[in-house]
């Protein structure tokens, strides 16, 4: 194991530019997918929290989409979107969206009704109530959803390599057929570190928003 690790380290030392480029691509794909998921699912989550009827259908639908393996989505999309970033992003957004959507819905519905009534009674407009009271209070739950999504996206972004985008998946999928486990580790360990860092960062952010 030590030997494998040192071989992996040597590989990185000798292929620095390739390695860092892969890390960069991996991060860029992951963050873009996460941002897209937030842009789509945060407003949708707020909306369904106010429309419980629609919420049931949408959450079920999302639950179904979630169980389709990302790799399957990837190849299902290739005929229409082709090989390229959009395909990878769609697959990753489908993965990242559900936890954000479900947590936004839960966070908004979990608010103390007294707080809403106080805000309305004091003369806040619906937008003021949302931005000054509802969102800040729902934020810990929403961030928990983003945290789950971030970890899943970073781990799954490895498959982007399969449609020719690069990222840390390159080392994993290159090492596998050659039984080059050192190469596999060059991909796997940074992915784990990135996912773990995202988890730590976002749980720190989440804690800083806990008020009660």
């Amino acid at each position: 194991m030590i030997e494998l690790l040192s071989k992996a380290y040597d590989y990185i030392q000798h292929n620095q530019s390739r390695f860092w480029e892969a890390v960069g691509t991996h991060l860029r794909i992951s963050l873009t997918a996460l941002a897209l998921a937030i842009i789509i699912c945060l407003p949708l989550g707020i909306w369904i929290s106010r429309h419980p009827q629609a919420a049931r259908y949408i959450i079920n639908l999302v639950g179904v989409a979630r169980v389709i393996p990302s790799i399957a989505i990837l190849f299902l999309l290739v005929p229409t979107l082709g090989f390229g970033e959009p395909t990878a992003l769609v697959a990753l957004v489908v993965l990242a969206g559900p936890p954000i959507l479900i947590n936004t819905d839960a966070g908004m519905r979990g608010l103390n009704p007294a707080v809403r009534e106080a805000g309305r009674g004091m003369g806040m407009s619906p937008t003021q109530l949302l931005t000054r009271v509802e969102l800040p209070l729902a934020l810990p739950v929403i961030i928990a959803g983003i945290r789950t999504a971030a970890v899943e996206v970073i781990a799954s972004a490895t498959i982007a390599y399969l449609i020719g985008i690069g990222g840390l998946g390159y080392f994993i999928f290159a090492g596998l057929p050659l039984s080059r486990y050192d190469l596999l580790l060059v991909g796997a360990i940074p992915v784990a570190i990135l996912a773990f860092t995202a988890e730590l960062l976002l749980s720190a952010v989440q804690r800083s928003f806990r008020y009660q």
């Binding site: 103390n112 707080v115 009674g121 003369g123 209070l137």
Partner: peptide
């Protein structure tokens, strides 16, 4: 206007409704 009306009336509720954040 609805908001203007409410801003000129003080409102206290049973569950206090202070904003916890």
């Amino acid at each position: 206007k609805l908001e203007a009306l409410r801003r000129q009336i003080g409102y206290v509720i049973q569950d206090v409704g202070l904003f916890p954040h």
